[in-house]
């Protein structure tokens, strides 16, 4: 084939890449260097003023960031533990195995926003069925209006919605494991628990790391759950980074500033997820 024309075939892909990835990021960076808001809509240039403000005069962003870290690490850990347990359960020969496999996947198949609306109704302080049941024991926790309980509620909803994803990945991993090491381990004197610690878990480590990283990336974008359940409230106690950026950009229309927030957030996420994945590899896969 003619050398000159070879690269012409790359253009469709390259065009899409530039169109949907490189241009938006470039534009976001340029936007973050402007003061575009409702009063002065336009791409002026104000240097790194937005970044200075972000690092020196915006504790609300950093608070929302640490809250997000807490929420995503907690939810992903819970999802991993519960998902792994469920996967182990249906991996063994239990009755109605196929039924359970499908059952455990249902939450993932539902629309997150709609399910969150239903959860909000569930947890409604005076009208929700959760408190109806709890009132038998004489308690009615303010699920959505107490700043600590609201976080718990978000965690419950997130875990419910996304554990199936973890379950699916881990079950696929378990099913792909060779059977022989388990045979050998029981002959070599390992009971069920030791077999899990010394054989199942180490063999599952690579898949576990993959699943955890994927879920961490997803979980650090928690926005819809917060938006529907609490709108970041009470006060700002359940505000996550993405929700805060949404508020700054699409509620207060400070486009320039929210672009700076987004870019900073992107950089932090790339760095921290890289560190986390390196740590997980070191921790779970020895040598």
């Amino acid at each position: 084939m003619n050398f000159k024309h070879k690269f012409a075939f790359l253009f469709p892909g390259l065009f899409v890449l530039i169109g949907i990835l490189i241009f938006p990021i470039g534009f976001m960076i340029r936007l973050s260097l402007s003061s575009w808001d409702t009063f002065y809509p336009g791409l002026d240039f104000i240097g790194i003023e937005n970044y200075v403000r972000l690092f020196t005069d915006d504790s609300r962003f950093w608070e929302s960031f640490f809250r997000l870290s807490f929420l995503s690490v907690t939810t992903v850990s819970l999802q991993y533990i519960i998902g792994f347990s469920l996967a182990l359960m249906v991996w063994r020969d239990i009755i109605f195995k196929r039924f359970f496999r499908v059952l455990f996947l249902i939450p993932m198949m539902t629309t997150p926003v709609i399910m969150t609306v239903i959860w909000r109704t569930f947890f409604h302080e005076s009208l929700g069925p959760v408190n109806d049941i709890l009132s038998i024991f004489g308690i009615a926790p303010p699920w959505l209006t107490n700043e600590h309980l609201a976080k718990v509620t978000i965690i419950i909803v997130e875990v419910w919605q996304w554990t199936p994803f973890m379950f699916l990945l881990l079950l696929a991993g378990l099913l792909s494991l060779p059977k022989e090491p388990f045979l050998a381990a029981s002959v070599d004197g390992a009971g069920p628990i030791r077999k899990f610690i010394y054989v199942t878990f180490p063999l599952m480590a690579p898949i576990s790391i993959g699943a955890i990283i994927i879920r961490l990336i997803e979980a650090s974008k928690i926005m819809d759950t917060v938006y529907v359940l609490t709108s970041g409230g009470p006060g700002t106690s359940t505000e996550t980074s993405s929700y805060y950026i949404f508020v700054k950009g699409l509620r207060e229309f400070q486009f320039g500033y929210s672009a700076a927030l987004s870019f900073t957030y992107l950089i932090i996420m790339i760095i921290s997820l890289t560190i986390i994945s390196k740590l997980l590899v070191k921790l779970l896969i020895k040598k």
Binding site: P178, E180, P181, L183, A184, A185, S186, V187, D188, G189, A190, G191, R194, Y198, V199, P202, L203, A205, K287
Partner: peptide, 30 residues
């Protein structure tokens, strides 16, 4: 796992995630 029996199989069955030393040490560690 309590029978104290050792078995070598037709297929080469070992623990793929462990080193040679750890493979051989496995039953002793148990």
């Amino acid at each position: 796992w309590k029978r104290n029996v050792a078995m070598v199989y037709q297929q080469f069955i070992n623990y793929p995630h462990l080193t040679v030393f750890d493979n051989i040490a496995f039953p002793l560690k148990q």
